[in-house]
Amino acid sequence: MALLEISGLHATAGDTEILRGIDLTLQPGEVHAIMGPNGSGKSTLANVLSGRPGVEVTAGTVLFEGRDLVEMEPEERAREGVFLAFQYPVEIPGVSNLYFLKAALNARLKHQGKPELDAIDFLELAREKMKTVEMDEALMHRSINEGFSGGEKKRNEIFQMTMLEPRLAVLDETDSGLDIDALRIVSGGVNSLRSAERSMLVITHYQRLLEHIVPDVVHVLAGGRIVKSGGKELALELEERGYGWLTEDAA
């Protein structure tokens, strides 16, 4: 069974139709990249998958392991193993990173019927995973993302992902605002999670990220539709030729 199967998806944000018929299938273990110009609907697709309020599915289906994802609350999706790495991670003063992440992990473990972690086991696991994204432990004792640099926020997203071990990871422009070193660290974290059971949807504007996280398939999104799909070489072609040659038809 496909891990994710999107068919004929239409979605609106506010009163505007943004997604206008998306078909996309992810098999377990596959990494797909979604590229496209600004305003093509990339982030809306990420929002539909994570269940952000304000985005409404008007037609089509999204099946996650054969089940209707659209019907699920955002927290249910997370517990089922859907993870969104946010383009703009939110700062939440007063809620500690570690407390939050422990609650999140235990919610997922409980949902899977696995034993929850106590504070000591959790901290041990967190310390180990922090190393994979070269995260400073001091940051973990602070409030969620509060005062973090752009790169630290993105690393925190990937750190959370390594802790939660999702089945489907959606990376929404994770490369935006990252310098080369941060990009290398973040990509390393993502690559360490690649496995035969885990699928990823990597949303990006630039080909640069895909040098580090090499996709199996590249889709070009324009005007709310996938206008072209191909292998990883499609990303290079886009880098050279831009989006114009693909988007003229879509518009």
Binding site: S50, G51, R52, P53, E73, P74, E75, R77, A78, R79, L84, F86, P89, V90, I92, V95, F100, L101, A103, A104, A107, R108, H111, I144, Q160, L164
Partner: peptide, 14 residues
């Protein structure tokens, strides 16, 4: 609402 969604998107109920 963004903070609320962020927490929920990690599995914490509303």
């Amino acid at each position: 609402p963004d903070a609320l969604f962020y927490l929920r998107a990690r599995g914490i109920d509303g």
